[in-house]
Design a protein around this nucleic acid. Sequence first.
DNA 1: GTATCCCGCCAGAAT
DNA 2: ATTCTGGCGGGATAC
Length: 368
Amino acid sequence: MKYQIQNQMNESSTEEKKDCSNEEQSYNRKQKSLGLLCSNFFNLYDDDDVEFLNLNDAANRLGVERRRMYDVVNVFEAIGVLVKKGKAQYYWKGLGGIANALKEMKEEALNDSFNISCDDDGTETLVDQQTGSSSQENLNANSRVEALAAGSSLAKCSSSSSKNGGTRTGKSLRQLTEEFVKLLLSSDGKVVALDQAAKILLTDANNSSETRCNDSKVRRLYDIANVLSSVGLIEKTHYLNSGRPAFKWLGRQKETLPVSKKRIFGTDLTNMSIKRNKTVSSMNLNLNSHNQEQDRYDLAHRHNPFGFDPTKLPNADAIVKKTVTRSQAMLNLASTHIPPYRNQGLQGLFAHYTEAWGTWYDEIGKKP
DNA sequence: GTATCCCGCCAGAAT
DNA sequence: ATTCTGGCGGGATAC
């Protein structure tokens, strides 16, 4: 059962291989990024009509295995996009839920030890990118980090969880997200270096062999950052001129999902049929070399999971006035001119809508 | 060489 | 006993 979805996908992958050309395509990590998955997640569910979603259904529609969904929903939960309602069931709050969650986190951040604008000894922990001051490089890290780590619920949880019999808290990624967001909220618009954040959030004063552990935790920070970046809350940048990876809080300055500079959102749903270390048939998708025209199409449709603009469609009243002949012509057009969908799930969804349209037109046509 | 992060194993929690 | 959940780190890809 654990790998049921994966097996399903692998089966479909096999079929696709049969159907497609012999063209080989190498594994491309960009096509499977967590950020892309998040963006596609929003595309699929960020609709006024959506109230609840099922994790299995989401995984199937997004073409990813369940495990990846947990990575996303845990971060989404932390920032208020989702609320878990039951086993594999989530209440979708969408972007509207972020504001309240951030407000609460900001208040908590002000109340706890994450007010890092000023160090114990008066030294600024975070650098001001405007002034370029780097004096805080000599920040009193030890005392500060220990104090923060000691007060951090994350540290408590990370110190007790391990593969060797530790108790699992069950919300570590969510907690880490919350702590990370609080840290960024406390940064007052300044850039937070990844290693700084890692020190503050991940250092376990009780764990002498923390380096190895933190390597793993830093990976989690990357995971979280990708999700937060995909919803426009943070921006990946660099720490001064050092080239060190860093993050800047944006706080959803705009209400639409950002276009990633690094990975063009909407170019494909993450599709698990392409495995690392393996090459597969192109599956009709030339993802590595999609042309400019395709890019424009992607951008034009990146907020629309259905691949067309509903506002461009005639309204219901107008449709009723049309003749059956014209309706049929439109149906024929729709059936022959299929937009170049590059996701099987959405293609299926569109097919469903096309069928529904057809039924509806038939009913209209039968009316006296 | 370093940064990034996908992937899936596997164990605890939940049912 | 079965399924859900998610911590974790190996190792591949990106830069």
